[in-house]
Amino acid sequence: MSEILSTLMQDARVWQGHRHIQTSQPSEPTGYQVLDNQLGGIGWPRGALSECLLDEPGIGELHLLLPLMQRLSHGGKTVFWLNPPHTPYAPALAREGVNLDQVVLINTEDDGDFLWTLENCLRSPVTGLVMAWPGKLAAREIRRLQLAAEAGSNVCVLFRERRYAEQNSPAALRLELAAGDQQDLRVNVLKRRGSWPGQCCSLAMNHRADLAFREVPCVVQGPWSGRAR
């Protein structure tokens, strides 16, 4: 019995407010040193769900996962994109050094198929990363996915809207993403295993469009004002 209890403590399944525990759970570094520091050196947990909550695409959410995608796809692991809202643009992924042979795009028609597919991907040893854009998910369904994620040991990131930040979720890591002022990505840790949440950090994402800092004030007075720009 005490053995079970100590395992629970060790894996940070039981949250202890007065103590920070260095967990020994398997994980993948995010590739962003700032974020890794904020997450207690853990990064993306493997064998558990992660959630990214954001409202609009185009704020650097894919670049957040790009280092992981690059590493996994070259390590022979498959990266699944499940029901993405737009088309992942192959030339851009290839330019960023993602091995496209290991990228599989899946579109499902209904929610039943979506959950079934995600569960199957999570349980397979070939999967390295699953990025999924679910519509509405019931807490029971997230719980089911969490169990499937535990059966495999891969990273699963669900992209959901920010309004779900209020709801509780069994996911092991929950990040709220928002655009910063300097084309950066502000990450707010809503939940993580083994420690207090609430860390905030800002990741520079200028490289996603080859923007330099000094270019920022150089505002072109849009072609809106006149044809001769």
């Binding site: 185009g58 809202p85 737009h86 088309t87 992942p88 050094g97 469009a209």
Partner: peptide, 13 residues
């Protein structure tokens, strides 16, 4: 593929 021009990761349908 590093010679490809800079493109966005999302392409709208």
């Amino acid at each position: 593929y590093t010679q490809l021009p800079r493109r966005p990761l999302w392409l709208l349908k």
